[in-house]
Simulated scan of single mutants.
Amino acid sequence: MPPRPDQAAPDSAVAPAVALSGVRHQYRAAGRDVLALDGIDLLIEPGEALAVVGPSGCGKSTLLRMIAGFLRPSHGRIDVGGAPVTRPGPDRGVVFQQPRLFPWLSVRANVAYGLREAGLPRPARTARVDELLELVGLADVGGLRPYELSGGMQQRAAIARALAPDPGILLLDEPFAALDALTRERLQEELRGIWLRTGKTLVLVTHSVDEAALLGSRIVVLSPRPGTVVLDERSQLPRAEHPRAAPEFAARRERVLAAVRGAH
């Protein structure tokens, strides 16, 4: 039986969920070559919640998009489940900064969209959507359109849609950045609860040191461009209703903040 995500450090004998070896990414902009990431080596264990934090332009989102299969590294290799990443796949769900829901479909139909396209029979599809809407707290609004929901509820629907194919890995690109502070805090705690209940591997990109300290069972800090790893720390917050009140949270936040400031 696999360990719960809130338990101790992962067993090194378990194959990594994601492996990045010597990854660098270069692109052309305004007629010149730009090196976004250089020399990234990471092993992300199954069930880990990896928070990647760093200054704007350090390559955080580029890293996430390469794991998702939207971009290819200029050099190096990215494996998911032991196989090289060559394109997007149902084993990786992606949540973007904006929900990107279909406005003409109901919340329920948005969550069910990928399942319907995959040919899942209606009874199984209905049961799966019911389960996910309950998980993200939207069971009573499934018949509404996205524009009838608040921003926070729309992002919950986007998380449910990403979870619908039951991916082993959930990739989140600053999913709460556009929300007000109170909604953001509430959804951070809800995402932490989803991770603890489902045991998914999470990779979260964020500008927020607080968000990284709260949600990451492991935190990686990247330097300014080209992004390189300047801090890689595993840590467990206690299973508490209000983890921000724990002394471990404040100490961890200060360590990460010092690493971000020192990277500039």
Rank of each mutant, 00 (worst) to 15 (best):
Q7E: 14
G39F: 11
K60T: 08
P167A: 03
G54M: 01
L171E: 06
G199Y: 09
E248I: 07
D232T: 07
T86C: 03
E254G: 01
H25R: 15
D11I: 13
A258V: 01
D41R: 01
L163R: 08
V14F: 01
L105N: 01
Q155Y: 11
L182W: 02
P224S: 07
L138Y: 07
Q98G: 09
L63K: 11
R186M: 06
A212E: 03
A19N: 05
P226G: 12
K200Y: 01
R4D: 09
A112S: 08
L20D: 10
E117C: 06
Y113F: 15
H242R: 15
G54R: 07
V136M: 04
L215Y: 01
A49H: 10
R77A: 15
P46E: 13
C58V: 04
A51Y: 02
G47M: 08
V136K: 07
I40R: 11
R108D: 10
L196T: 04
P84N: 13
P146Y: 09
T206D: 07
V205E: 05
L37C: 10
D11Y: 08
T62C: 08
R192M: 14
R65H: 15
L120H: 00
L37A: 12
R145A: 12
L171Q: 11
D180S: 09
V95S: 03
V34I: 15
E45S: 15
G89S: 15
A17E: 15
S74N: 11
W195Q: 11
R197N: 09
A250E: 15
E174S: 11
F70Y: 10
V52K: 09
L187A: 07
V230K: 06
Q155R: 13
V203Q: 06
V203D: 07
P243K: 12
P99R: 12
H75M: 06
E211Y: 03
I219L: 01
T86F: 02
E148T: 01
A162F: 05
E117N: 03
L132D: 05
L215R: 08
Q26E: 15
P167T: 02
Q26M: 09
D11C: 13
L50T: 09
E211S: 07
L196S: 12
A68L: 01
A213Y: 04
S217L: 06
L105D: 02
T62E: 00
G119N: 07
P2L: 11
G216W: 04
T86H: 14
Y113G: 00
R261M: 05
L37R: 03
L231N: 03
P121Q: 03
L132E: 05
F96E: 08
V129D: 03
H264A: 12
Y27Q: 06
G152F: 06
V221D: 05
T228N: 05
P238E: 13
M1R: 10
T201H: 02
I169A: 00
V129Q: 04
R244A: 11
L237R: 06
T198Q: 14
G59T: 07
A181I: 08
